[in-house]
């Protein structure tokens, strides 16, 4: 899969890889692993999709800060 095909599928199927055919999802992930522009396109597509009601992330934030504090 090249960047053009990735862009085409992303526009058609959206960024949720569960909606992609399994083979295409695998190829998309392989492309993104080596192509930062594909990652940027993916992030943009996620930003453009309707979001679910925001989850409460306060506990997650606490865990992250605590782990950074411990591991530093």
């Amino acid at each position: 899969m090249d960047l053009q095909e990735f862009r085409r599928l992303l526009a058609a199927l959206g960024p949720d890889l569960a909606d992609w055919p399994a083979d295409a999802a695998d190829e998309a992930v392989a492309l993104m692993a080596g192509e930062p522009r594909a990652q940027d396109l993916f992030a943009r597509a996620v930003a453009e999709t309707a979001r679910d009601p925001a989850a409460d992330i306060s506990a997650l934030v606490d865990r992250i800060v605590e782990q950074a504090r411990r591991g530093d």
């Binding site: 992930v29 992030a43 996620v46 992330i57 800060v65």
Partner: peptide
Amino acid sequence: AFRALVTRHAEFVRRLAINVVR
């Protein structure tokens, strides 16, 4: 400052990740 950054972006990073890892 770190906590502010995490609070600001954790939700989007979570959405980014869930679209891949499901």
